[in-house]
Design a binder for these strands. Structure first.
Lengths: 189, 189, 189, 189
DNA sequence: TATGAATGAGCCTTCATTCAT
DNA sequence: CATGAATGAAGGCTCATTCAT
């Protein structure tokens, strides 16, 4: 992958996201991506080694730029408020970028995903785990195994985003608060 | 004359589930299914119109036999206990049939899914909604929109099943109870 | 081919003609024939060795019953009148059995036709040649090689039948007479 | 970058004609065409949308380049001589390109032919009709419906070409003249 | 004999990838 | 670097034929 980015990589990523969201990860073809990105199909192979690498690259790009970037929050706030900030960020992001989420969903369960990409997930999970552990120390979070608590947060946001996108419900501050209440009630001690 | 053999459909379904779980829904080929099911590839087209129909049929089969069948529970018990029964059933089922769950995941986000298949989901959701509404009337469930509560239950089981399967954690009664506590705390009034 | 004819062979032939006329010789499948003839596809192989033989059998059947049977005319009449009788017969037959003609056309140019079937054509041609030769002896037919005269008669009826069928023009006695005039003018001395 | 090569289309057409003439339109496969044209099978789909389009394109190409191009004859000559010129041209062409004629025959009666392709036929017929009408005005052609006269010319050339090709008779000027005499006698007033 | 489920070779077509320009 | 024509393996599906009942 070339470092000198002419915006071509951006275009390729955008095209890939749009096409996947519209037609599914099956039915996503390299030439369709090229066409949508307004480049020749051969050019894709200048920037990426192949389809698999392109998709993995995009996955990591989205996870890092899109999801993980929302984490480094304001460390001075109380835990619950930090969690709320994250929750709000993530939820907003996922819903206003439903195409990206659609790509993430499909890619995650596909056979394209590499071992390395899977680890990006774990990074996110790691951050959550840290929060939960801190909460447990302060006795404000349930003293349960993280394997029980993390799927709740992770599964809830995911499904919430998917549900709201499918039903075309728009996100209000009130809804965000309500969902956080639900989430917090679930994990609080 | 040979009679159409229903066992063959079972074999086809099993082969499809196993292959999807192992190699992904991409890379799932009709001939691979046939080979694994120990029939000729042409035979698939006696039982199904094509790949798309086969997958949709399997999806509905799994949803109905596998998930929805767990719902019609013991109506005489208090709500919370009914929910626990369902929760326990669904969780056990999904975890002990992780290949099926892998198929369901991948299929649901694929472009193969038909409008009709999507409605099966809604059936499940409908049942959940009924429970939640009953709980709201008894003031034991949060008075929030179902669009907020359902993704919690749905997303949590899904992710729990996926998480436990990936991490190869086995399900104990204690874990089931703990996860239910988390779930119940989330939705209870 | 079984001799004991239950009418099944008739049904098979009719089905084959109808389907070929409607969908072309390409797209003609054994199971479609069976279905239309209201028998099982396996049964076709009791009466015929295979598709090729079935088609050749039908071709010869149609040529013999349909076309050649119109030839043995009234030998006592003058040649021109005999020719007119044949002309009229053949034309009427071909137009009122356009499906059969469609089959004959397509089969004749297909790769299914066997050497033996090709010879049936020659029988018909032989009869025509005999007439023409007789005519030449009486100096009422052009003294030209039959290879020049026969294609005229043969090609004309064929094309006439096809043309009238396509244009859905119905055959009147007057038209028959006119076409015969044209034909006769062409070959007469 | 390689440029689309028009010679490739020629090669594809030639391969298609040769194969159809040899093995029939049934049994004509895309991969056989590709092999004979010395290209990869996928390349066919760069130049044509599919088998059907390829065949229709070839049909129109042959009709236009091959048959219709012979029509715009010398308008200053008397009608009969114009007709002779056309007759001679068409006959020569069809016999010296018997493979093309074989293709045309088979394609015309196949289910591949599109509505649009059928209209090319009508163009040819239209030209003939114009000639005949002119001839009728000059009282040198029979005052009969064109539906009666056209099949004669059309059917005669067709069958003549087919007959001579099958019998492997070569075309001499004398034969051309004789066949024209026959044709002219048929339609002349 | 009759049935129609089962077979599997082979077809058309797609598409990731390569390569000549 | 960029292009898009060319490649060819592989997929979904059809259908003549067989065979268990």
């Amino acid at each position: 992958m070339r470092l000198k980015d002419d915006g071509k990589i951006e275009a390729i990523f955008e095209a890939t996201i749009a096409l996947t969201s519209a037609d599914g990860l099956d039915g996503l073809t390299m030439s369709a991506i090229a066409k949508k990105a307004k480049i020749a199909s051969g050019t894709l192979y200048i920037y990426f080694e192949g389809k698999e690498q392109l998709l993995n690259e995009l996955y990591r790009y989205l996870m890092l730029k899109g999801t993980l970037s929302l984490l480094p929050s304001i460390a001075h706030l109380p835990l619950k408020q930090q969690l709320f900030a994250i929750w709000s960020n993530v939820l907003k992001f996922r819903i206003s970028n439903s195409s990206q989420v659609a790509f993430l969903h499909q890619f995650r369960y596909s056979s394209f995903i590499s071992e390395e990409s899977r680890k990006v997930d774990e990074q996110f999970v790691g951050h959550l785990a840290a929060f939960l552990n801190a909460g447990k120390k302060e006795f404000i979070v349930k003293d349960m195994d993280n394997n029980i608590l993390i799927p709740l947060m992770y599964g809830y946001v995911n499904n919430l985003a998917r549900h709201f996108t499918l039903k075309k419900i728009s996100l209000t501050e009130k809804i965000i608060e309500q969902t956080f209440v639900v989430c917090w009630d679930a994990i609080k001690a």
